[in-house]
Design a protein around this nucleic acid. Structure first.
Lengths: 229, 229
DNA sequence: CAATGTGAATTATTTCACAGCC
DNA sequence: GGCTGTGAAATAATTCACATTG
C-alpha cells in the first residue's frame, strides 16, 4: 500500500528492542500504552507506526508480542542475512568489529579492511584484517551489500566511492565527513563530534536562558533568547 | 527572536565542518549554493537555517567563511568549555576516550569510569579509569555537564539516573537501550544496531521492489510493495 | 546582476479524538 | 469497558519563488 515514512522506519529498531525485553520477561501481550512508555514515544504514534506495518493488534486486547516482533523483524529485512564489511580498523573500527550485535540481527561480518601494514594480517574479533586492495574482490565474492566506514575523514569519500562502485548499497559512515553517494545508495551518518555539539547547543541554551521550563507550570512567557547574541 | 528548529540545530555541526574545510583551503567567501553542495543539503534550506542564526550574508556576494564559522561555533556553545565524563570503558568507551575530536570542539574530558576491577586504575587516552563509585564526586568537582554512556544496555538506565542526579544535563547514550530522563535533560541516542537495521530495511526494499526508481524518469507506477507481505 | 532573506505554498509528521471491534 | 485503527486537525519542516539589496 503506502511506503513507511522514514521516521517510522527509524523507530522500528527501538520497538523491536523493547519487545525483546518484554518477551524475555515472559510477557506475551502488550498495549500501545505499555510499549510507548518503554520506548519513550506517544501511544498514538506507536499505533500509527504499527498500523503502517499492518500489525494485527486486537481492539480491546492489544498486541501479541511474538507476532509483533516477527513482523517488525521482517520489515527490517532481518529474515535474510546481510553481509557487512568494515573499512578502517582504528580505535572505532576495532570496537565495531568486536561488536556483538551483528549476529543476532542477521548481519554477518565478512571482511575487515585497512591500509596500515602493521594492522593487515592481524586478527580482530575473529576476522583477519585485509588490505583495502582486496576490497572489491571480497565484496564480489561475499555479495556484501552493507559497509561500515570508519576511516579517517580524509579517506571517507574515496572509500565510499570504491564501495559503491563495488556494489555496496548501504553505508554506515562514522567518519567525520559527509559523503556523497549516487541515487539508490543509502547512507547513515553517525558522528560523535556532531552529537556532542548538539548537546553543546542545548547546554548553552540552558546557561543563557533563565530556567529550563518548570515541569508543567507557567509557560515561561516569551523568553527573549535569540539564536545568536 | 525565535528558537532554532531542532532540525536546524542538528545540521549546524555539518555546516561548521564544511566551512572548516573551505577555510583550510584558503576560501574566504562562499555562497549557499557552494556550501549546500558540500554538505549535501539544498541551497534554500541552508539559507533558511543560516537566517535563523542571523548570519549576515550579503546579497549578491555570499557569506564570509570566518564570520559564519564563528557564528555557528557560538550558537553551538563552543565558546565555553564543557566538561565531559565517559561511563563504561569497554571497546566502544575506549575508542571514545581516545577520540581526538573532543578538544578542538571545546569539550574537555574530565573523567573515565567503569566498574571492572581490572580496568580501574589503568590509563586510557591519558586519563586514569576510576571506579563509578567516584562518579558523583568527580562530576561535582569538575562541574561536568555532559556524559557519554557506553555501558552495557543492562546498566544504562541506572547509570543515567545517577548522572542526572549528580547534575548532568546532556547525555550521549551509546548503550543499546532507550534511557528515560526527566524534563530539562537532553539525550541523544546513538545505536549501531539500530542504524544497521535501518540500512537493512532499505536493503530489503531493494530486494523486494523491482528497481530503485530510475534517476528521474517514469515514476514506477504504484509498485505494490506493502510494508509487510 | 548575483545571491540573500523570507513570506507563502507544499509536503511531512505528529497529535487528536472517536468510531469500531473484542 | 478497553484498546486499536484511522481519518481529520494541528504542527513542523522543506521547498518555492521572488522582492530586495550590495
Amino acid at each position: 500500500m503506502r511506503a513507511l515514512p522514514p521516521t517510522t522506519v527509524a523507530r522500528l529498531p527501538g520497538y523491536l528492542r523493547s519487545l525483546g525485553g518484554l518477551a524475555s520477561e515472559g510477557v506475551t501481550t502488550t498495549s500501545s500504552d505499555q510499549l510507548a512508555e518503554l520506548v519513550g514515544a506517544s501511544p498514538a504514534q506507536l499505533r500509527k507506526d504499527l498500523s503502517y506495518l499492518g500489525a494485527g493488534g486486537r481492539r480491546g486486547v492489544g498486541y501479541e508480542v511474538d507476532h509483533l516482533r516477527r513482523q517488525i523483524a521482517q520489515a527490517l529485512g532481518m529474515a535474510e542475512e546481510r553481509q557487512v564489511v568494515i573499512v578502517g580498523i582504528g580505535n572505532l573500527g576495532h570496537a565495531l568489529a568486536t561488536y556483538s550485535g551483528f549476529a543476532d540481527r542477521g548481519f554477518v561480518l565478512v571482511g575487515l579492511f585497512d591500509t596500515h601494514r602493521d594492522l593487515v594480517g592481524t586478527t580482530v574479533g575473529g576476522h583477519e584484517v585485509q588490505h583495502v586492495d582486496h576490497l572489491e574482490r571480497v565484496i564480489e565474492e561475499t555479495e556484501a551489500s552493507i559497509a561500515v566506514v570508519a576511516t579517517p575523514g580524509s579517506a571517507a569519500q574515496a572509500t565510499t566511492d570504491r564501495l559503491v562502485a563495488a556494489g555496496i548499497t548501504g553505508i554506515l559512515n562514522f567518519a567525520p565527513r559527509t559523503v556523497r553517494v549516487p541515487d539508490g545508495v543509502d547512507v547513515r551518518e553517525v558522528d560523535l563530534g556532531s552529537e556532542l555539539q548538539i548537546l553543546g547547543f542545548h547546554a548553552r541554551q540552558r546557561s543563557v536562558a533563565p530556567a529550563p521550563a518548570p515541569a508543567d507550570g507557567a509557560p515561561v512567557a516569551a523568553s527573549p533568547v535569540a539564536a545568536a547574541d
